[in-house]
Simulated assay, not measured.
Amino acid sequence: MALLACVAFISCKKNETLTESNELNASSKKQTTTFASYTVTTEAALKSAISAAAPGDQIKVSGTIYLTSTLQLLNSGTSSNKINFTTSNGGILDCSNISSGWGVKVNGSYWNITNLTIRNAPDCGIVLQHGGYNYLYNLKTHANKDSGIQIYNGSNNNYVLSCQSYDNYDVANGGENADGFACKLSGGVNNKFESCTANHNSDDGWDLYGQPYTVKILTCTATNNGYGTNGDGNGFKLGSAGQTVAHTVTNCTANNNKAYGYDGNGNTGHITITGSGGSGNGKGLMTRIY
């Protein structure tokens, strides 16, 4: 009897210990994670905040910041806690003091980049070069000397929503390269543009030249592109010769572009264009669409 009582006592104490441990774990899980928030007004403060940014943090640009070198977003957020790069009052990144290169380079993943203006870069305004799962919303990119927004070199699963890209002109090449939006030259998988506008860019509104994976373009508008001396001037350039890539264009509009509204450009993939149209394009609405 004494042995049985002892066993029962040990069992009871063990259960109490487990219960206390569970309560501690539950309490720990209820603790709120805190994220850093920075409001910056100078290039030095901006680059310091960007370099230190961790998942869930927020960096706000206040006023106009004049960059003297490319702003590099190299670290990453997570799928549940992205890094937020935005503005408190219409922030502008002016790149006119950069001697060469892109305005903003994104090599990290899981960034929300929203409500900013990026202008006057000596090359592209913003390039998503590596990484992926980035979200660009309500950006304005203009007066850059190459494409306003470009996805490139394996960057994947990016979503570009409600952005405007206009008046981009590569002076050195007579306007041959500066598109409003580009996903070209080896961008990765699952990139999408929605409700964006490209107008008065020296080359094309959208350029998918050399892009090996399907790009989706939805409810976007390309107007008056191709004003550069050497610009092609298509509203939507959907690939290039030797490619077989099934891009999709849905409910888009192409008006008054120098060349075609929609040009497959030699891409023999089954390009799907649905609910899209336009008028006033110099060479016609559609060509080389298979």
Rank of each mutant, 00 (worst) to 15 (best):
I149T: 04
L185T: 04
S147E: 01
E176K: 15
T141R: 00
G132D: 07
G180K: 08
A172D: 15
K140W: 02
G175H: 09
I126P: 02
G125H: 02
G175V: 06
T141A: 04
G132R: 11
A143L: 13
K145P: 01
N173L: 13
N177F: 14
G180P: 13
Y135T: 12
L161S: 11
L185E: 08
D146E: 13
S186Q: 14
S155W: 03
S162W: 08
Y169C: 11
S162M: 09
L136I: 11
N156P: 03
G125E: 01
Q150I: 03
H130E: 14
D170N: 12
L185C: 02
V160L: 14
V160T: 12
Y152V: 03
N138E: 13
F181E: 11
G180D: 10
V127H: 00
L128T: 02
C183F: 06
K145C: 06
K184A: 07
Y159H: 10
Q164L: 06
Y135Q: 14
D167P: 00
Y133V: 01
K140G: 01
H130K: 15
N144E: 01
N173K: 14
K140L: 02
V171E: 15
G175R: 07
K140P: 00
I126C: 02
E176R: 15
V127E: 04
I126A: 01
A143I: 03
D146K: 06
Y152R: 08
Y135H: 15
Y135L: 14
N144R: 00
Q164Y: 07
G174Q: 03
D170C: 06
A172W: 12
S162T: 11
C163H: 04
G131T: 13
S165A: 12
Q150S: 08
L128S: 12
Y169K: 09
N157M: 08
N177L: 12
N156W: 10
I151H: 00
D167Y: 15
G174M: 05
L139F: 05
N157W: 06
Q150M: 09
D167W: 11
N157D: 14
G180T: 10
D146H: 08
Y135C: 03
I149M: 03
G125P: 03
Y152N: 12
T141W: 00
G131M: 12
N134P: 12
S165K: 04
H130G: 05
H142K: 07
Y169Q: 11
S186G: 07
C163K: 05
I126N: 01
N157F: 14
C183D: 14
N134A: 09
D146W: 02
G174Y: 08
Y135R: 15
V171R: 13
Y135M: 10
C163W: 04
D170E: 09
K184G: 10
V160E: 06
Y137S: 07
C183L: 10
Q150K: 04
T141Q: 01
